[in-house]
Amino acid sequence: MGFNDYILEKKAVISGLEVSDWKQAIIQGGKVLTDHGACTEEYLETIVRKCEDNGPYIVIAPGIAMPHARPEEGALALGYGIVTLKTPVVFEDPDNDPISLLIYMAAPSVKEHNESAVSQIADLCDEEDIVESLIKASSDEEILEIIRNQES
């Protein structure tokens, strides 16, 4: 299943999440994955630890992070999620801070991880007007509507 189809079918979105820092953002926003059985709690904790150890590898563009870890680090099923933050958080990535949009991903195999998931998410994040409207959306339904419109 593609990124858009998954998001629409599972309604895997959280708009306006309130958090105080990037760690809380990753863990609390990660509900979009755990609620649908896509990953374990450890998967989210691993992402936080890897960011602490290696720097914010999940920050991919201005305002956008893509929280994900390796398939063997707790991915249970192919899963995606879109989370927007009420107040942007800083990841210590000067080129891209502050971050308002989190695109989650879990994939149980490297092949799925790379070839479909990453490139689909990059396609979405490369559309600046869509990213801007996602960040501005005031409800989950509004986010779903943006994705639905993109589909058609």
Partner: peptide, 12 residues
């Protein structure tokens, strides 16, 4: 460009 590179989906 990281996003452009990611769009290619380059694997092992």
């Amino acid at each position: 460009s990281l996003l452009k590179l990611m769009k290619l989906g380059i694997s092992q």
